[in-house]
């Protein structure tokens, strides 16, 4: 009896502290539940049901998934989404690194450079999409055509050339986000000990070798993280293709998220939209899994 009582006492003291801590976290956790977790689960549920307006009607098994895969635009959107990812790796991954390295090498106006490259990041994305859409106008009055026309170039088709649509959209994404990423690289670069460079210089390393053997290895870890975060975010591209060309020309820029938006809001088919977003989530979870593994390894090292 005595023994038992003591144990309960000890535990209850411990419990009270835990309880208070959980209570402190409860409001925030509820917000997470409402805005993040519950919709994810709700999505999975909805994906198995037919709906009328936004009301659940019947359980229809995998029919929504079949409908998504058979959708006339699905293959185009699926391929494009990977094309977005591919181009964003090619363009969006290296540009911030280069910006970071270059600005690190300046001594004049450094603060101004940092500010300027970050500036696109604070501009509201909607406003920048509208602005870019006029930059890409194909006629002689398109802003880029005006600028390149001054250099004696013929007007270009820009987004209307299906081969260029996705790369150009990725360039606008990079324009917007590269500065922020570059700042992170710069912070990493500036934390490299000067001794390393000095030692390398004594060993006779030139500028290029120093970049390769000292700068590059020191930012590779953070670069991996940036890479996966970038893939995840570009996988959900929606507004740019929607406002630029509404997914055109002839589906050349339609993305999976855009398709989901159409199912949900144009066709009022919530079940189908949910099925597609579950599919996207599965892909993202796989990508996230890779990320988790990569960072776990990094921490071990």
């Amino acid at each position: 009896m005595k023994k038992g009582k003591r144990r309960t006492e000890g535990q209850s003291g411990f419990r009270k502290k835990d309880l208070m801590a959980w209570l402190v976290m409860t409001p925030s956790l509820l917000l997470f539940a409402f805005f993040v977790w519950e919709p994810l689960i709700e999505n999975i549920r909805l994906s198995f049901f037919s709906t009328k307006m936004y009301q659940v009607v019947d359980f229809i098994g995998l029919n929504n998934y079949k409908a998504v895969i058979n959708d006339v635009d699905f293959m185009a959107a699926f391929k494009n989404t990977f094309a977005y990812t591919f181009w964003s790796l090619l363009i969006g991954f290296f540009v911030p690194m280069i910006i970071g390295v270059l600005i690190s090498e300046t001594v004049h106006l450094k603060g101004f450079f940092r500010m300027a490259v970050y500036f696109p990041n604070i501009m509201p994305s909607l406003a920048t999409i509208w602005i870019w859409s006029y930059f890409f106008l194909p006629g002689p009055t398109g802003v880029l055509n005006i600028l390149f026309g001054k250099l004696g170039m013929e007007p270009f088709e820009w987004l209307n050339n299906p081969a260029w649509t996705i790369p150009l959209i990725v360039i606008t994404l990079t324009w917007k986000s590269a500065g922020a990423t570059a700042l992170i690289y710069m912070a990493n670069i500036s934390s490299i000990s000067p001794d390393l460079y000095e030692a390398a210089t004594i060993d006779g390393a030139g500028i290029i070798q120093r970049v390769r053997h000292i700068t590059a290895p020191s930012i590779i870890g953070i670069a991996k993280t940036m890479l996966i975060l970038q893939i995840i975010s570009v996988f959900q591209i929606l507004y740019e293709p929607m406002i630029f060309k509404n997914g055109g020309p002839n589906n050349a820029s339609i993305s999976l998220m855009m398709l989901m938006y159409r199912y949900g809001y144009r066709d009022y088919n919530v079940g189908k939209a949910a099925a597609l977003s579950v599919m996207v989530c599965i892909i993202l979870v796989i990508l996230s899994g890779i990320y988790m593994k990569a960072t776990a390894k990094k921490e071990e090292n």
Binding site: F34, F35, L40, E42, N43, L46, Q236, S277, L284, V285
Partner: peptide
């Protein structure tokens, strides 16, 4: 890892 756009339809419904 999984930002909100994917479940915006369900969230809006809720």
């Amino acid at each position: 890892m999984i930002p909100g756009v994917t479940s915006i339809v369900a969230l809006f419904r809720n």
